[in-house]
Design a protein around this nucleic acid. Structure first.
Lengths: 107, 107
DNA sequence: TTGATATATAGCTGAATGGCTATGAATTTG
DNA sequence: CAAATTCATAGCCATTCAGCTATATATCAA
């Protein structure tokens, strides 16, 4: 099964795509045209990256006339943060266990 | 420039490779043979993934006779956590700004 | 309506990569 | 030494995918 976490990691792995997401986080809602300026790639490529980000739930879109406004969905990063903290959590548990062991040896 | 963050994201994007890293986080130091059992892929593939994880600084290795013991380097996740929290931080700032605006409008 | 603008889609291509088997290199065992 | 074990490397193949150009679709402007 492909989890939501799988898709988030895979989607954020590409630097160009992650840079687009970063801009949306920093600058708020932006149109495709604005995002294309400074992206370093063509407009169709930007649109494709935005579609990927949307599929992963990382951005939303809002249509207004000819323009499409995209914005970051910050909550979508939660699975990533949770995962990372869970992984470091295992380390803390091991560290605590070691500390306990040393304390017991002290007595 | 390819940053360390780039490599961490790219390395963790593959589910098989991330699963190996997760096992090392949960179970601590393990040999290649143990990791191969249950990985669902062949031993050379596991070795290749471990080499990728090592290049990204996510794991360490320790040689002992014929065996190579790998372990997770938890600190290597810091750039990922920092990045995610920075991104959500932008949202909080915008939220605070909105709150301030509403407060001022209230008066 | 005609043309211009904004975005999405289709189709292509080359590069990257995850998987495999075969084999090399190093170490332990008999 | 010879055989077995453990892991890494080499070489191959199929797939994925990020980029491109061309074009379709939709909207606004004249």
């Amino acid at each position: 099964m492909a989890t939501a976490r799988d898709e988030i990691f895979r989607t954020l792995a590409d630097p160009t795509r992650r840079a687009i997401f970063e801009r949306l986080c920093r600058e708020g809602e932006r149109t495709v045209g604005v995002l294309t300026a400074g992206a370093g790639v063509s407009q169709p490529v930007v649109s494709k990256h935005l579609a990927s980000l949307k599929r992963a739930g990382l951005v939303r879109d809002r249509h207004e006339g000819r323009q499409t406004h995209y914005s970051a969905d910050y909550a979508a990063l939660a699975p990533l943060i949770d995962w990372a903290q869970e992984m470091t959590g295992f380390w803390e548990k091991k560290f605590d266990a070691l500390e306990d062991l040393l304390n017991r040896m002290d007595q």
